[in-house]
Design a protein around this nucleic acid. Structure first.
Lengths: 217, 217
DNA sequence: TAGTTGCGCTACGATACCGTAGCGTAGCGT
DNA sequence: ACGCTACGCTACGGTATCGTAGCGCAACTA
């Protein structure tokens, strides 16, 4: 993503006072969102916590919804499970996938926005704008996985019968499921378990599940 | 109020007026929950919609939280993806799994409580009681899948390397993921896609993915 | 017929928020 | 110094809920 729907540059070319206010407001909103969810975010609470006057909030945002929307946007911006190290694509498929999944797991459990994930999901279920926001985020976040799977398929490391879309769902789905629904322990080792299970079937004709090292083409 | 936390039987042995009121209240609460989520449920709105006086609601429930909790409970009660037909256990693993997943997909997209799933998840993220409720529900809902996988493993239809817990996550996870997060189309055919992908690796030594018909034991 | 139980209705006092208006002030450029 | 800009603060009018109290009625029971 280049510029997330607004102007990240403009942010700096503003009156320093404005920038300060906006930042404080965003921080407070995000904090409230994280600690208590959607319903917990109140203009007055944001004002109190940010130290910014309520009127000032209304000077920058027209409604509570927009405020929350923007807060989510800022919260997600530094996220995504990319950026780790962009050189995995040519390596071992298994290792690449494990790496990506570990990133996702970290994001869903240790990141700043982790506590807000369920709230975000709920919001996305009703508000079209939120839905779009999540959609864009996912496109971005899953880009790495898509590329990795696609190239592995072309290379022949993954069977041609593997549907890339379904593959992503099967890798990422279990992680989200544990985080949101079953709430079973979710640590880095789960990445390996999932990928192993997935790969054992996804790797072309290899019988069990040893390393997929001996390929040429 | 004597007991509103359990006793499905008691429900009928009550004063008919009480039963009627309670039912109307539960229905209205569920409806509000479905159409607008947690925050949309208001005692006064429940009163209005159910035709029951606000005071009567307070006569049966001590707080809004309990009310919502009970409504969720009633909503989930008739759910679960079991009950379809209990004779799959001995059949083809693939078919059994597909059958179960189809049930789950129907539940998550067409059931009465489907629209409330994300709200439920969000609630479970904060409230311990809700968490417990969801947990119990899942135990029950996944029972079929657990049994099926366990017996298939013992029978030798599934590799011993398959972790039953992870297997369930990998089957069910993608479905929830599509429903809650990616929001891509989620129809019955997804059940087959997931199971095929899963089984292609989970079935012991079978190479590609033809029918697993030629077995004796 | 008298007693009991459960409900409906109206009316409150108490909060919590919303969104807006008005006034005064500090900082920055000219 | 002068003025513009963005803020802070106080104060409203208005709404939505909460949870409770009090009164009267209808139905079922003894």
């Amino acid at each position: 993503m280049a510029s997330n729907a607004a102007e990240p540059r403009t942010e700096e070319s503003l009156d320093p006072r404005v920038a300060r206010s906006r930042a404080a407001i965003m921080d407070a909103t995000a904090a409230l969102l994280i600690e208590g969810g959607f319903a917990h975010v109140t203009i007055e609470r944001v004002a109190e916590r940010s130290g910014v006057a309520k009127t000032t909030i209304y000077r920058h945002w027209t409604s509570r919804s927009r405020l929350i929307f923007d807060a989510f946007r800022n919260l997600l911006a530094p996220a995504a499970m990319r950026d780790d190290h962009p050189a995995w694509a040519e390596d071992d498929v298994r290792e690449g996938l494990v790496h990506l999944l570990r990133g996702l797991i970290r994001g869903l459990t240790e990141s700043a926005w982790a506590p807000a994930v369920s709230t975000l999901v709920d919001a996305g279920d009703r508000d079209p704008e939120m839905r779009q926001l999540i959609h864009d985020f996912l496109i971005d976040a899953m880009a790495g996985a898509r590329i990795l799977i696609a190239s592995a398929r072309e290379r022949g490391d993954l069977a041609a019968t593997v549907d890339p879309g379904v593959a992503i769902d099967m890798l990422v789905g279990p992680v989200f499921y544990r985080r949101l629904v079953s709430r079973e322990p979710l640590g880095p080792e789960f990445a390996e378990q999932v990928v192993d299970q997935f790969v054992a079937g996804a790797l072309t004709p290899r019988p069990p599940l040893p390393t997929s090292r001996e390929r040429g083409s």
